[in-house]
């Protein structure tokens, strides 16, 4: 099935089996292996990418469903010589160990800060109606869709706090 995907600002014309997920399209058909496959069932968050600016699990989206949407992957956030502030903060705070969940964590964290800016509450927000303060607990709850088996969680929270603080 012919599909055009817009990824990191450029268009890609693909002919895909409708069964191909966005994640497999990125990894196997476009060579964008920064998005990782940890479970393929939306249970680990390693495949997190942004679709129209929102974080989603690329493993639970069919590529053909993404036509006309803007997909941003870790490769679109920054490159080794030109890292985004979130990517730099992860290096500085050792917010990873093996690195496999890391692109998903960073995509997730980047979008999560936008959600918080829009005033979205979380399950741990005391008050649903006021603007939530991005405490460590709030960051942890909002990042709980990204498993890290190396368990760099406290360092991940440090990195995100750092970026959130400097953007404030």
């Amino acid at each position: 099935m012919k599909t055009t995907l817009s990824i990191n600002g450029s268009g890609h014309d693909l002919d895909l089996d409708p069964r191909v997920t966005l994640l497999d399209a990125l990894r196997q058909h476009l060579g964008l292996t920064g998005s990782k496959k940890g479970c393929d069932h939306g249970q680990c968050g390693a495949c997190t990418v942004l679709v129209d600016g929102r974080r989603v699990n690329a493993c639970l989206t069919l590529a053909v469903m993404c036509e006309g949407r803007e997909v941003t992957t870790i490769e679109g956030l920054g490159a080794p010589g030109a890292l985004s502030s979130m990517q730099k903060a992860f290096v500085e705070h050792d917010g990873y160990q093996c690195g496999y969940c890391t692109p998903g964590q960073i995509c997730s964290a980047t979008a999560m800060l936008e959600e918080a800016k829009q005033g979205w509450p979380s399950y741990v927000s005391d008050d649903l109606e006021s603007r939530p303060a991005l405490t460590r607990e709030e960051i942890s709850e909002r990042m709980s869709g990204n498993l890290c088996r190396c368990a760099a969680y406290p360092n991940i929270v440090d990195a995100i706090e750092d970026v959130a603080g400097s953007e404030r």
């Binding site: 939306g42 968050g45 699990n57 997730s108 509450p121 979380s122 909002r142 709980s144 869709g145 990204n146």
Partner: peptide
Amino acid sequence: LLSGATGQLRNM
């Protein structure tokens, strides 16, 4: 809603 799943899944 906020108690269910994750930020990513709730966006989908």
